[in-house]
Simulated assay, not measured.
Amino acid sequence: MSCYNQCRQWPFLSQEEFELACAFFDRKYIRAELGPTRRIFKVHHRRDATTGTSFIEILRLLSLPDDEDALVAALGKLGRDYSTGLLMEIDSNNENEDAEALRPDIIDGIQTEGKDPPKYSLHSHQPYVIYQIHLHPTYNVPTLWFTLYDLPMGEPAFDLDSVYRYLVPDEFKGRLRAAGIMGGLSGAPHPLTDVPSFFIHPCQTKEGMENLNCPIDDYLIVWLGLVGGCVGLWVPPVMCIKDTGKQ
């Protein structure tokens, strides 16, 4: 069967199809043998309790601190709920059996709560980025939003120069600047918080995805391969290995 048949209107996604794609992506992260990569790359499948819609959140340290204690302090704050305080984490099968799947917002089986963006200790100051994947309500394709946090004093987070300095690899800078606002990086109020954030405009997603015959469980992996690299987001290769479903 063609993979196109798994979506009603390839490459566009309905809300139900997007929810399924998010669940598959989260499962790939949980089951992957990522090793030390989990220390700086964390994936959460979240749901907005107000609208009921789900999305993927990816947190990544921009660099590793030299001090191991600073790293522990930094990671201790990563992964907590934030923004409106109305976000819920979606439990995934086999998560409790995965020793690598570090979930710092669950301590001794109790879900912790937090209404502020994740912050590091005063002694760590580790810049990090939060990526979020939401379904665009008009284009009906995934959209990658991202926000920088804890940059050095004097460097604004919502600033295009900061994005190019910390996230955009050199090989993408000329291409992104030439693409202009509609074809590259855009700024708008975040779909959940209304705080100004950056996103990659989805106007070219259809052209990029329509000839790629991938199943729904690989949709976000393939899509991120097209759009993520230009803002420093790469899916660990081990997550791209086909899931056999074995425990």
Rank of each mutant, 00 (worst) to 15 (best):
R103V: 15
P189K: 06
G187W: 00
L135M: 06
A157G: 05
A101N: 15
E171L: 15
T193Q: 02
F172V: 04
E210R: 14
A188S: 12
P196A: 03
T143M: 06
H134R: 05
D217T: 12
V168D: 02
V227Y: 10
G187H: 07
M209H: 06
D217Q: 12
W145L: 03
Y219D: 02
I133H: 05
G114E: 04
R165K: 15
V141T: 15
H190S: 02
A157D: 11
D161G: 12
A157M: 08
G229V: 07
I107G: 00
E113Q: 09
T138V: 13
G174N: 10
M153A: 13
D116T: 13
L185R: 10
I200A: 02
M153G: 04
A188W: 06
M182K: 15
M209D: 02
V195Y: 00
E210P: 00
T205D: 09
P189D: 02
T112C: 08
K206W: 11
L226W: 06
D105Q: 13
L151G: 07
P189E: 03
E113F: 12
R103H: 14
V231I: 14
N140Q: 12
P104E: 06
T147I: 06
G174Q: 10
V168E: 02
G154Q: 05
V195N: 03
I216H: 00
D218E: 11
G184L: 07
L185M: 14
L212H: 10
V231L: 01
Y128E: 01
V195E: 05
P117W: 13
L185S: 08
Y219A: 03
G154L: 03
I106T: 13
Y139C: 06
S186D: 09
G174M: 04
M153I: 12
P156H: 11
D159I: 12
R177W: 04
P117A: 12
I216E: 00
A157Q: 12
G184E: 10
